[in-house]
Design a protein around this nucleic acid. Sequence first.
DNA 1: TTTGGCCTCCCCATATCTAGCGAGGATAGG
DNA 2: CCTATCCTCGCTAGATATGGGGAGGCCAAA
Lengths: 237, 237
Amino acid sequence: MEEKLEALCEFLQEAADVSHLQAATEQLRNHYQIAHIVYHWVNSAGERFGAGTYSQLWVDRYVEKDYLRMDPVILGCLQRFNPVDWKELDWSSRAARSFLREAIDYGVGNQGLSIPIRGPAGQFALFTASHNCDDDVWAAFVDLNMRDLIIIAHEFNRKALEFEQGGDSAPSPSLSPRELAAMTYLAKGLSRAQAAQEMEISEHTLRVYIEAARHKLGALNTTHAVARALSRGLIVV
Amino acid sequence: MEEKLEALCEFLQEAADVSHLQAATEQLRNHYQIAHIVYHWVNSAGERFGAGTYSQLWVDRYVEKDYLRMDPVILGCLQRFNPVDWKELDWSSRAARSFLREAIDYGVGNQGLSIPIRGPAGQFALFTASHNCDDDVWAAFVDLNMRDLIIIAHEFNRKALEFEQGGDSAPSPSLSPRELAAMTYLAKGLSRAQAAQEMEISEHTLRVYIEAARHKLGALNTTHAVARALSRGLIVV
DNA sequence: TTTGGCCTCCCCATATCTAGCGAGGATAGG
DNA sequence: CCTATCCTCGCTAGATATGGGGAGGCCAAA
């Protein structure tokens, strides 16, 4: 799985649009005179891409350790809406703190601002600016540049979306209303029998919807189908 | 211009509830000298709120006819990411065109810009500015004010989110690393046997993790547990 | 030291899901 | 009008998941 991720990222680095992003991050970094700019993008198929100015050493380390799954910046922004300063995140666990220490050792800033933006089909973009400085300097920087950074994040998203739609990426399948209802009830924890009762249809019919949704979503089982429907933003619990 | 905008944002930050948003929209409208400003918000429970400057006649008509379900602005923005000019939307169906004609009759602008923004739990916000003028004037307006409008949309969302979260924010339970891994593999569509193999433990042990996660998450079954872990941002597929 | 959480393993009976098959009526768009 | 999609219902059999129970070792914090 990790190799696939790396391959995708490499591919993207060579792709015209993303190298554009890469160049853009570098340019931004120079312009704002901060340590790093990172752009992280999860498309509607759940594939991840990134472009940033972190050192290759840190990127390798990050991938190797699968830090994606515990990085408080990622986890925090997955639950948030608006730009978030790294200080507002949850660094209480030991793993998180040692992660931060290590990150700083690898040249990542001790201060950071991340802007999460979501797309209609479960796309998730995270634009991050980070720097190494004390709190006052950082607060002043954020105060001055927050708006620009939000606008830039939107620009990046536009680019990423263009790339996604221009390429061969499979568009999110559209589920019928009953299929969506079925997925939603299952995501709420109802059994098939209960869901069928809610929808006032036979359980047999409900099964047809689940199967149809499963096939459309390319899912291996019901849980997978519900997970995909959720992470693509097709349903909401 | 800039100072006035900042004052508006400050006002928004002090706004305590949705009824204040109404006042804010009115203020924005005066400031930008356009026909209408509308803010539309769907919270994580799927409940809709709105604040805007449309005439009550049009609002009543809109609700009565259940236009929400066919309004090309709503439908279009539900599938989009970035600010969208109404001209970019799909007005091809007969119903859409007659809807637009009717809207203009009721005083809604013939030009509009809508900014969709999404939250982590399916929240959906739509900030719209509309006006009645010809294309050139409108293009100039958009060109000049797009950035401000994006920032304002974000401010509105921050307020709406605070309002939604005011009080009953139940903290997400913390799952152990193995529990998270189990949830993640299940969300990826692996069967219990496969997940156990990936984690190099027996299927029996895996079941214990799933059960533990299920109880922590207050979930009724495995699918529910995975759905909750996903929608709370505890795991990433 | 004791408590609590975590990780690992095992048994069993029942409930649920999966994967095929088939079929008729409603509805909306071209 | 026609075609495609959706909605509804039925069957069978095997595979898989679920919900109880219990048990021992490890580690860290109180």
